[in-house]
Write a protein that binds this DNA or RNA. Structure first.
Length: 637
DNA sequence: CACGCACATTTTTTT
DNA sequence: AATGTGCGTG
């Protein structure tokens, strides 16, 4: 593995705290891997190195590439997301963290729980924010280390009474979580950070286990995560890589300024830069550079391509999203006939929603694809149905699971189920809860019987899933008219479960990082086309990229219009999208339709980033001739 | 109290 | 598209 001067300087730097500012495609991941490899080769025990990233896909890639770079030793490096790192540590010391047999709530669960509480505390038809919005407020406040009250007063125009009411709702939510043995996403970080901060003994015990903490995508860390990093920084060295122009998680409390204040926050910290782009050709970078230049924010960034290539990105305007989808699908098909692989193509969309017509067009043409982002497997109704039985066996105090499970059966409605779920709060064991079921639902014998059978298989995840599916099959078949189509998700679920040691671990893994429903059954030699949201695409690249629906309403997204910071974040989203392309970039757009059209009727001054693009930066017109040539595997020799 | 029908609602982005 | 919600019926 070879590195350029800048990369090598970062890899071998002996600063205890180092921030590497790296533009898109400048070899961030390569440098982080290089750093870990370098540390190992200079004698550091791999177990004492951790690499945190922001998605499991990124973490998996790091694990893989590390193994490639240093062999099996690489496996012992701790890799994962922030949430994984926290969970791992808490699971290893359940007593210190008060973490025992907890069920992790995904977003749907959180919303449902909050809705339950809202319905009791807030009068009907009140204009008081809905559960989902309340959850956003709460989560943002917690991720930025503020009290909800503080946040609501500062950032919303809620009245005094409503703020009080919101506080009550949040308080009740917290209590319900405690009672149900639940941990939501924020609790995972929060509890970990809180204990590390407050308990010096635990902090030493935990943080002393690492000598080197490497952080990917530093611009996405929020104040809560920073708190965790600070605790570690007392005992370990910190090597962070990030790019302010790629910060697209402000909605989660991330503040990209933290890559700039790094030096001020940690004594003796230094910042290095990576400026050479190895991914894209210059014409692609020219468009990206133009986009940042057009921003009022000073990114002071000009990406320079190392690789040759002078094909301009192509810009196409369509009459509708359907025409656009049709054309993209056809273009990919043509390119494949011209010798390209399916897997050379990536289609980037702003929201999962805009991907739908695209998906339809791909299916129609039998183009194998996978969709990343959007509805995860574990969010689909029938999967949740089956998992409710599993969750009960893992945590019998899981009220939400009881509700879902019990109401599956004809004759049991939400009132009856709710009554039972209320009683389960103090249950000590699965056996005890099963005993209660057999008493309360004596008439519905299979309610009890299915759980008993699932509980028996609890040690074998795949078998437990299969048992649950079999038990519920007839009931589910009656309630879904497209049951046939849905069963294949359950097969997939079973296969996924087979890869895991325990049901708890299985649930945790996929709650923290959901798999897509549309994961391809099998990839042929040519792989599959990737359809992906820009947020999920960060850190990835592809020889040929289609940035679709690049118009007002998507870039910037209509929800962000009017808020300067949010609009600028949208610019960075588009920037991330454009900089994924290696050789060819297509930017396509169409007039807004449906929801957006209605939304924007009468509003004339919607910003549109792409509209002002200088003509000379792109080529226009109809069909592009395939210009792709199979690339030599890597451009860096 | 359960259930079925009709209707509304949702549509950022992710851990 | 696919859930969730409200209301009348049994």
């Amino acid at each position: 593995m070879e590195y350029n001067e800048e990369q090598w300087a970062a890899i071998t730097a002996d600063q205890r705290y180092l921030m590497v500012l790296a533009g898109a495609g400048t070899g961030k991941t390569r440098t982080i891997i290089g750093r870990a490899a370098h540390l190992i080769e200079s004698g550091v025990d791999p177990k004492r190195i951790a690499v945190v990233s922001f998605t499991r896909r990124a973490a998996a890639e790091i694990t893989e590439r590390l193994r490639h770079a240093v062999g099996d030793r690489g496996r012992r490096v701790v890799t994962g997301t922030f949430h994984h790192l926290c969970l791992r540590n808490m699971r290893a010391r359940p007593r210190a963290f008060g973490f025992d047999g907890m069920t992790i709530l995904d977003r749907d669960d959180q919303v449902q729980l909050l809705r339950l509480i809202r319905s009791r505390l807030v009068e009907k038809n009140s204009k008081f924010p809905q559960a989902a919005e309340l959850l956003n407020y709460l989560s943002y406040a917690r991720n930025t280390n503020q009290s909800p009250r503080e946040y609501l007063i500062k950032f919303t125009d809620m009245s005094e009474q409503w703020v009080d009411l919101a506080e009550q709702v949040f308080q009740a939510y917290k209590q319900r979580k405690q009672a149900g043995g639940y941990l939501d996403y924020d609790d995972i970080l929060h509890r970990f950070a809180e204990v590390l901060r407050a308990d010096e003994r635990v902090r030493e015990m935990v943080c002393r286990e690492l000598d080197h903490l490497l952080v990917d995508e530093m611009q996405d860390t929020n104040p809560l995560q920073w708190l965790i990093l600070e605790s570690y920084a007392q005992h370990a060295s910190l090597f962070c890589v990030g790019d302010d122009a790629q910060s697209i998680y402000a909605f989660r409390g991330a503040d990209f300024q933290n890559v700039h204040s790094f030096e001020k926050r940690l004594p003796g910290a230094r910042t290095l830069k990576l400026t050479l782009n190895y991914r894209s050709t210059q014409p692609i970078l020219d468009v990206a550079n133009w986009l940042l230049d057009a921003s009022p924010l000073p990114y002071r960034k000009r990406l320079r391509a190392v690789r040759p290539g002078n094909v301009k990105p192509r810009f196409l305007q369509f009459d509708s999203d359907l025409d656009q989808a049709e054309w993209v699908a056809k273009a990919i098909q043509n390119r494949r006939q011209g010798g390209a692989k399916w897997s050379d193509h990536m289609i980037l969309c702003r929201t999962a929603w805009t991907a739908r017509p695209m998906e339809a067009a791909l299916i129609e043409r039998n183009i194998p694809y996978r969709f990343i982002g959007g509805l995860g497997l574990l969010q689909v109704a029938h999967v949740r149905d089956v998992l409710s039985a599993i969750r009960i066996v893992v945590n019998p105090r899981d009220e939400l699971a009881w509700m879902r499970y019990l109401t599956l059966f004809p004759g049991i409605g939400d009132v009856t189920a709710g009554r039972f779920a209320g009683k389960v709060e103090n249950v000590e064991s699965v056996e005890q809860s099963l005993e209660m079921v057999s008493q309360d639902f004596a008439k519905h014998s299979h309610v009890h019987a299915i759980l008993v059978r699932v509980a028996k298989k609890a040690a074998r995840p795949a078998q437990a899933i299969r048992t649950a599916v079999k038990g519920l099959e007839s009931t589910l078949e009656a309630s879904y008219d497209d049951w046939e189509r849905r069963t294949k998700d359950l097969d997939l679920l079973e296969r996924l479960a087979a890869k895991h040691e325990s049901l708890r671990e299985f649930l945790e893994t996929y709650t923290l990082d959901p798999v897509s429903v549309a994961e391809p059954e099998e990839e042929d030699d040519d792989g599959v086309v990737t359809l992906i949201t820009v947020h999920s695409a960060k850190g990835t690249e592809s020889p040929v990229c289609f940035v679709i629906s690049a118009q007002a309403g998507s870039y910037p997204h209509s929800r962000s219009v009017g808020d300067r910071d949010a609009e600028e974040e949208e610019r960075r989203v588009l920037y991330v999208a454009l900089t994924r392309a290696r050789d060819e970039l297509y930017i396509t757009r169409h007039p807004p339709s449906g929801f957006n059209q209605g939304y924007w009727r009468g509003m004339m001054s919607t910003p549109d980033f792409v509209e002002d693009m200088p003509l000379h930066l792109v080529d226009y017109g109809e069909f592009a001739t395939p210009i792709y040539q199979p690339s030599e595997d890597d451009v860096i020799r």
